[in-house]
Simulated assay, not measured.
Amino acid sequence: MDLFAADPGTLLLFTAISFTAGFVDAIAGGGGLLTVPALLSAGIPPHLALGTNKLCGTFGSSTAALTFIRKGLFTPGRWWAASGATLAGAALGALLTRLVSAGVLKTVLPLAVLGAALYLLWPRRRSATAEPAFQPTRASQWTAGSLIGFYDGFIGPGTGAFWMAAAVRFFRLDLVQAAGLARFMNFLSNAAALAAFMTLGTIDYPLGLTMGMALMVGAWAGAHSAIRFGAPLIRPLFIAVVLAMSVRLLWQQFHG
């Protein structure tokens, strides 16, 4: 799809979706639950949609991650094991998409997005109070990083929300700290998967860069909002976004 040859309404729509995805992703994760269905709905082939989504997603996740680090709400040095596992898992997942046919991906992607959304609605979270004395083990970091990283490289949508759930439930972070961890790990997996998709040649660069600019603006606004308002904003928005995308995908499956 050549975005710049499309009508202004299409350009505006993709820009609005990307801004919203960046804002939501920076706060609660799940921005890919907006961008991937939008790309697929526009008729973009599944492999190209995944690669293009990684290009624009890298812009948004890098902006949000840098904001949390600058504010002192996330320290990368504490999470080297998770970082390495996330990079490796995401690169492997992205490369393996080459072995899957477009027809299979076209069927699997909507179902995977829907499954991720429904799962994220289900778990009951622990208290939002952090436990600073808790030190995540290297094994737990490797496990979370490799599994979620692989999912992000192979499928993608909902990765930030999965990291949020893991950070609160298994690493005992509060919601703001969890958002910082999720944004940083999402940036790493986006970057690793992007490199893999670049080697596969499955990226629409004009579309991805355009969406990426809008995602950056949305991510900057979302990260500052999350830091300022904390759990009262993060929790309801997280639930609302996942619920909305679940309903949307169900509608597409049965009436699309």
Rank of each mutant, 00 (worst) to 15 (best):
L3I: 15
L3E: 07
L11F: 14
F14W: 14
S18H: 07
S18Y: 10
G32T: 03
L34F: 08
G43F: 12
I44C: 00
I44E: 05
G51R: 01
T52E: 08
K54V: 05
C56D: 08
S61Q: 03
A64K: 01
F68P: 04
I69E: 10
R70A: 11
K71N: 14
L73M: 13
L73R: 13
W79E: 07
W80V: 02
W80M: 10
A82K: 03
G84N: 07
G93K: 00
L95V: 12
L96P: 08
V100R: 06
A112Y: 10
Y119T: 08
L120S: 05
L121V: 09
W122H: 12
R125C: 00
T129P: 05
F134H: 13
R138A: 09
R138T: 15
T143Q: 07
A144E: 02
S146P: 01
T159V: 03
G160E: 03
W163G: 04
V168P: 06
R169E: 14
R172H: 15
L173G: 13
D174H: 10
L175V: 12
Q177L: 10
A179N: 09
F184S: 07
F184A: 14
N186R: 13
A191G: 01
F197C: 00
F197M: 00
M198N: 00
P206A: 04
L207Q: 07
T210N: 03
T210A: 14
M211K: 01
M211W: 12
G212K: 05
M213Y: 06
V217F: 09
G218D: 09
A219S: 09
A226V: 10
A226C: 12
F229T: 04
P232A: 00
L237E: 02
I239G: 02
A240I: 03
V241H: 01
L243F: 15
S246K: 02
V247W: 02
R248P: 06
L250Y: 01
Q252A: 15
F254A: 14
F254T: 15
H255E: 08
G256Y: 13
